[in-house]
Design a protein around this nucleic acid. Structure first.
Length: 260
DNA sequence: ATGTCGATACTTTATCGA
């Protein structure tokens, strides 16, 4: 089973590129972030034509996550628990049946958190605390669970072209990394890191300042695995070639193969 | 060199968010 994550930065702007990639990459499950669309405006037909079932948690203008699945959804859940006042569409979870069990998957768009002296940074940290609490509960199910998405977290110095330049940024602040480690310490596995040891393998390059041409990137899109998913992990790769396409997203797809 | 994009609205340019 092939499971992918991609922050597409706007479904309307990216629909043709996304369909092209889906046809050639052919994932069984695709977690999308930053669809920047309400549920009503989401072009589900374009994916249903390709054999996908579609779950959307949308919002006008900003944020928004979706999951495409070749298998029907047994259940879906929208919104990260823990704060009734949080209306931002950043969390979608789904369960599908496979031979001999289920696979649970979450599509997450973790808050950026910049600027750090604004209310956005504590919102990010609080969201990470809530994510940890929620995932901790889910782990008691002992299922293969893949938490995939744009984490807006640079895990280590080897995941950024210029660590100095990012030192004070919300994506690389000690408070952020501390919470990312707390998440991993629940017993989760960073799928890409489990498959590859080389550093400077990025998933995002800014549109500005020729970042792509200079390979000035960061690795912030991750697939974290429950122990039951990690046991079945076969491979994990970054499709960096889409960054060179016409009208690219600033993020590229990351995918893994599970032996289920 | 804070140099680009995408979405939105009291729109055709400014604002926000990333």
């Amino acid at each position: 089973m092939k499971i992918a994550t991609w922050n597409i930065n706007g479904i309307k702007a990216r629909i043709e590129g996304l369909v092209t990639w889906l046809k050639q990459a052919d994932p069984d499950l695709a977690c999308l972030q930053e669809i920047k669309s309400q549920n009503e405006g989401f072009p589900s037909e374009r994916f249903e034509e390709l054999g996908y079932n579609v779950a959307v948690h949308g919002q006008k203008s900003f944020n928004g996550v979706a999951i495409l699945s070749k298998r029907p959804f047994d259940e879906t859940m929208t919104g990260l628990p823990g704060d009734e006042s949080d209306v931002q569409a950043r969390y979608l979870e789904a369960v599908v049946s496979v031979d001999g069990g289920v696979v649970r998957v979450a599509s997450i768009y973790l808050p950026n958190g910049n600027p750090v002296d604004s209310e956005k940074f504590p919102y990010k940290l609080g969201w990470m605390d809530r994510l940890r609490d929620h995932i901790k509960g889910r782990l008691s199910f002992e299922e293969p669970f893949i938490i995939a998405g744009d984490y807006n977290v640079i895990p280590a110095e080897g995941d950024v072209h210029d660590p100095q330049a990012w030192a004070g940024d919300a994506l690389f602040r000690p408070e952020t990394l501390e919470r990312f480690h707390a998440l991993l310490n629940l017993g989760l596995t960073d799928a890409y890191r489990a498959c590859h040891h080389q550093s400077h393998q990025y998933t995002f390059w800014d549109y500005q300042a020729g970042a792509w041409q200079k390979d000035n990137g960061i690795r912030i899109d991750h697939l974290l695995l429950s122990p039951q998913a990690a046991d079945r992990l076969k491979s994990c790769e970054i499709d960096r070639f889409t960054r060179g396409w016409e009208k690219p997203s600033d993020h590229v797809p990351v995918w893994l193969k599970l032996d289920v």
